[in-house]
């Protein structure tokens, strides 16, 4: 009969590589976590002084935005008809200053609606310009 010899030694897994494993895990999770959006739309806005001069020289399209509505020169327009209408109104205008489209928004217009409209203006060949109402503070004595 063969008797097995017992050594009584503890066998431990090597722990030297634990740090490296932790390091690699962290790198992995960092890469996974950094999936923030990094794409979008470039928008060139003419400087306000230039816009004022341009408005004096030529009649530009004016888009009025409310929370749900879009108006071109005061006339309500459906979103599906928006691009063809703007294209039609801009046709025949070759100078960049004539292609300026003035966007005037009500205070409560949400960003997603604003982006949808300004994106369509640019797709139609227009140059977006904002008309912002200046707030005036009056101190009552």
């Amino acid at each position: 009969m063969k008797i097995r010899r017992q050594t009584g030694l503890l066998i431990e897994p090597p722990g030297v590589a634990t740090g490296d494993i932790a390091f690699n895990l962290i790198v992995f999770f960092l890469v996974c976590a950094s999936t923030q959006p990094d794409s979008g739309r470039k928008q060139n806005l003419p400087k306000s002084e230039q816009t004022q001069q341009q408005q004096e020289k030529s009649e530009n399209l004016q888009i009025d935005l409310t929370r749900t509505l879009v108006q071109i020169n005061g006339e309500p327009v459906k979103m599906k008809d928006f691009i063809p209408l703007v294209k039609a109104k801009l046709s025949g205008k070759s100078r960049p200053e004539d292609k300026v489209v003035v966007v005037k928004s009500k205070k409560d217009v949400p960003y997603n609606h604003w982006i949808a409209v300004t994106t369509r203006i640019e797709e139609a060949g227009g140059i977006v310009t904002l008309q912002i109402e200046e707030e005036q503070q009056q101190i009552v004595p």
């Binding site: 794409s39 400087k47 928004s105 949400p110 960003y111």
Partner: peptide
Amino acid sequence: VHDETAALRFEPVIEAISSAGGELVHIL
């Protein structure tokens, strides 16, 4: 910009970027 933000809040920001000479990119 958070999609529900009102024009009252984001338009002055766009104006500030424009007047500072920044090249604006909307992240969407």
